[in-house]
Design a protein around this nucleic acid. Structure first.
Length: 322
DNA sequence: GCAGTCTCGAGGTCTGTGCA
DNA sequence: TGCACAGACCTCGAGACTGC
């Protein structure tokens, strides 16, 4: 048994018992002399800040800690809360995108399971009690996703076949991946497209083939990415050109008032208890879908172009029912 | 009687050096 | 480059003394 094993064995012996552990017991469990037990204890105090104390009245060693507190050695000896946080994150990832990081996280997950098992807890309980329901998520080819995620993290260029829905065309592109965005249950890849010489967003499920290239990708500064992608409404990139003014009925306002549509959104309650929301946007397509989702409970006040577009959509929809 | 601290010596391991 | 060897270093157990 080497020194490190003895340290963990001693920690296990002291922390797993409700009563102080005698020096003789520690000698037996660590298979060493009294002097070595003492050396191990001194090292634990010195290097790990272990609050280990000898209780003369009960003739044994114990951790001097307040009720409910536990001492853990550094390394993969997480506290209970940290273990749960890690396990919950893994569960969330597994639900958001099944298969994502499964291989990479497997050894860590198994280790966590072992530790939790000693405390009569486990990931099964989290699976039973925490549910994430995907509503409109589109299926991603796992192999493509992993290639894309791998190249993104290793900062390599990618060569992709991309089928765009808008034009119903397939194109081949060399891109420098910048960010993976999980937006409204779907994955998007923000990337610099070397074919178009511009920043673009790619729906990951529309990437029909992906190959990581050995060349280092081009890094776009954070500020430039934020300005291009984040300052606009939704996934449609570009600088906000307009501000939409939406008015919600008092009934719908109770829900909408708690929603976050845009980082720069402004809102106010009106006298008749209706709720007015002002949202900057550059491309109206996604915004119109959100407005129509609220049906008769919302009115697009301005700008005129947005109001007209919503009216046109509603007229077209109505025509289908006649 | 039990544990803390210290010293000393034995045995094992690591490291640097020289040589074929 | 691989091997042998010597010295340094580390780890451990035993024992002595002390304190509670």
């Amino acid at each position: 048994m080497d020194r490190l094993q003895r340290i963990y064995k001693l920690h296990q012996a002291v922390s797993s018992r409700r009563y102080p552990v005698s020096c003789q017991t520690l000698q037996d469990e660590l298979e060493c002399s009294r002097a070595t037990v003492n050396r191990i204890i001194q090292e634990m105090r010195l290097y790990f800040n272990a609050p280990i104390e000898y209780d003369r009245s009960r003739n044994g060693y114990h951790y001097a800690l307040a009720d409910g507190k536990t001492f853990e050695l550094p390394g993969l000896w997480f506290s209970e809360t940290e273990l749960y946080a890690l396990l919950t994150t893994q569960q969330l990832l597994a639900h958001v995108q099944p298969g994502l990081l499964d291989t990479q996280l497997k050894p860590v997950k198994e280790r966590i399971e072992q530790i939790l098992a000693t405390r009569h807890m486990g990931s099964e309980e989290i699976s039973k009690r925490v549910r994430i329901l995907r509503m409109t998520g589109r299926n991603v080819v796992l192999e493509c996703f992993q290639t894309v995620a791998g190249a993104l993290l290793q900062r390599n260029k990618l060569f992709i076949n991309y089928h765009g829905r808008g034009k119903d065309e397939t194109s081949q592109r060399e891109i420098s991946p910048q960010r993976l965005i999980h937006y409204r249950d779907n994955w998007y890849l923000d990337a610099y497209c070397h074919t178009r010489n511009a920043l673009r967003s790619f729906a990951v499920e529309r990437i029909t083939a992906a190959k990581a290239l050995p060349q280092r990708c081009r890094d776009i500064p954070e500020k430039q990415l934020d300005a291009h992608y984040a300052s606009s409404y939704g996934i449609f990139a570009g600088k906000p050109k307009h501000t939409a003014v939406l008015r919600f009925t008092p009934e719908r306002a109770r829900w909408v008032a708690d929603e976050h549509w845009h980082p720069q959104q402004q809102s106010q309650w009106l006298e008749d208890d209706s709720y007015e929301l002002r949202i900057p946007y550059s491309d109206s397509r996604e915004l119109i879908m959100d407005i129509i989702k609220h049906g008769a409970e919302v009115e697009a006040i301005s700008p005129k172009s947005l109001r007209g577009a919503v009216m046109q959509r509603l007229k077209t929809a109505l025509a289908r029912y006649r």
